[in-house]
Design a protein around this nucleic acid. Structure first.
Length: 119
RNA sequence: GGAGUGGGUUGGGCGGUCGCUGGCUGAUGGGCAGGUUUCGGACACCGUAAUCCGAGAUUCGCCGGCAGCGAGAGGAAAGUCCGAACACCACAGGGCGGCGGACUGGCUAACGGCCAGACGGGGCGACCCGAUGACAAGUGCAACAGAGAAUAGACCAGCCGAUGGCGCUCGAAUGCUGGCCGCGGUAACGCAGUCUCGUGUUCCGGCGCACAGGUGAUGGGUGAAACGGUGGGGCCCGCUAGGGCUUAAUGUAAGAGCCCACCAGCACGGGUGGCGACAUUCCGUGGCUAGGCAAACUCUCCGUGGUGCAAGACCAAAUAGGGAGGCGUCAAGGGUUGCCCGCCCGAUGCUUCACCGCUGGAAAGACAGGUUGCCGGUUUUCGUUGAAUCGGUGGCCGCUCCCGGUGGUGACUGCGCCUCCGGGUAGGUCGCUCGAGCGUGAGGAGCAAUCCUCCGCCUAGAUGAAUGACCGCCACCGGCUCUUUAAGAUCUUGCGCGGCUCGCCGCGCUGGGUUUUGCCGAGUGGUACAGAAUUCGGCUUAUCGACCCACUCCAGAA
RNA sequence: GCCCGCGUAGCUUAAUUGGAAGAGCACAUCCGCGGUGAGGAUGUUAUGCGCGAGUUCGAUUCUCGCCGCGGGCU
């Protein structure tokens, strides 16, 4: 595992995201399900060069302010850890309740562990 | 100083790093089914305005990536409770129905909103609250309590004693019995008279009882609610009935809204004030009637088509299906479909559920059950067996529909491939943000809401949905911990003074402990409610706090 | 974005022209038994009808505003 490089690409354009219901369905139905401490991940290899991510927070997680905050934290997490993610996979993350109270370092460790288990 | 009332403002700040969304500008030439333009071609030939096909150029667009610039959540963005704009659909006109609104005047595009007022209620007050038309059109409702509850009502106590009843009694009439006596008759008996006699009936009068009855402006008590209060009712003539006088004076057994006057309240009419709701310490008339509830039905007046930007407009893939053309292929069958439903199969359905097994399939259509074994209950019997019946559970038989396979029969029709066309789905573009806009700018009208004129400003447009993450410094708040210092309260060691009931009390100084308040510094924690989704105007609800203005009550000082 | 329905005892639910709430299960106590289950009897368990206002003499019921839960359309 290489060390975090400041020059690494940390951008997050729309092509890095899953935006269509059809794509979400495909990942849910045929992807591999991984339970982590703060979220549930679904992973499916795609035919593209880059990887893509989709984030979901259900009504049960809280009101809209709460849901938006969780979505932003997960997005930030992905943006800073893109160098860890192997190219050519689609990830969908469903947020769990504990995420709102967890510190950023904990979540980052959890995300890395999830990637380890996925291969 | 304390307690409150009403209104307004604000919704942490600065900096750094890495990001997101859309806009503008620039450069780049990566992509393009677009536009423009050049050349060539099309139908037998020529020409070409248009059309189609192919090749190239341009950088006019679009997409992707790059750089720079400036922008990016709220007072409630929320709830979706009202009102509109806008869009589509429907629609001759009128009525009924349904739904909604309901004091007055104003504001507004409109409103169930706002402002000013009226009336009612609450608060000592500043102020607050009110769906606030009509129970004098009809229908209905009022538990429990209470005598009585909506054309009211006699339970207890009080009062009355007309009328009926009961008791006593004066008198009269009369029946019977008795006494006395007369006449007729032998007698039985008949007829008649009389009575301080007894007894009964009827009538008249008197007295009493209060059983029925009367009395509600005699009191009690019940309830949310029980129909106002005070005073007066004379004089004269007449036997009575009645008549006369005074503004009016009646009547009864007793009485009574039976009559009159006044007070209060109500209603109506007029005057006055107000645009009006309404007010009125003004005037007149009526004379106790007309209790409450319409967020009960209802009536009156007014308003009202429906759906919502996921509205709607445009572009438009794949697949299936529709239409047109071309090519290929067949004259025997094929395709679609109806009927018989014949045969195969056959249920978990007919008959509660689950599981297993078996079985061509499935559980939407349709249909009907029968028989038998076992268990339990009931009836019959004194009891058992038996019988009948009901329920549960299993077996066997039977029945039913659809799909499938196969057979018969009828109707209609060609089939396969290619190209094009139209509708239309996914998807995309528009709608989409400059508007009933904002301003703690100025002036004017108005008590105000608000309006007018001028000036200035441009302030999110996302769509699995941007406006963020992390760090540093500061600000504010609350509690805790440590620390510097000051003041107060309290406990206590020691010393001094004073008192005296002689071992306690009071005062002062000094030291220590506990605690409260303020201040300096440090650490720690917290900084609400909450996220645009077509756009506005309101309402309602959530909200850690901070600041400002006006006013009220209480206490104190001058 | 829009539109419906429902909140009653610990649980599942009734009741209404407005007059103060029943039932089943559960729970507790008792009877019975050597013990347990089944059965029988008694008790609503300090409930006030999701919350707050209003109308009314009186509200679970009528009206308004909130809160929570469930469902539907596109």
């Amino acid at each position: 595992m290489t060390a975090p490089d400041e020059a690494t690409d940390q951008r997050f354009p729309k092509s890095d995201r899953i935006l269509k219901r059809e794509l979400f369905r495909r990942v849910y139905d045929t992807g591999k399900k991984i339970q982590a401490r703060f979220f549930t991940a679904f992973i499916l290899p795609n035919s593209q060069q880059q990887s893509r991510i989709g984030i979901t927070a259900t009504r049960k997680t809280g009101n809209s302010v709460e849901r938006n905050r969780l979505r932003r934290r997960v997005r930030e997490l992905y943006r800073r850890n893109k160098w860890r993610v192997p190219p050519g996979i689609d990830i969908v993350i469903n947020v769990k309740d504990g995420l709102a109270r967890a510190g950023y370092d904990e979540i980052e460790k959890d995300f890395a562990k999830m990637l380890e288990r996925s291969r």
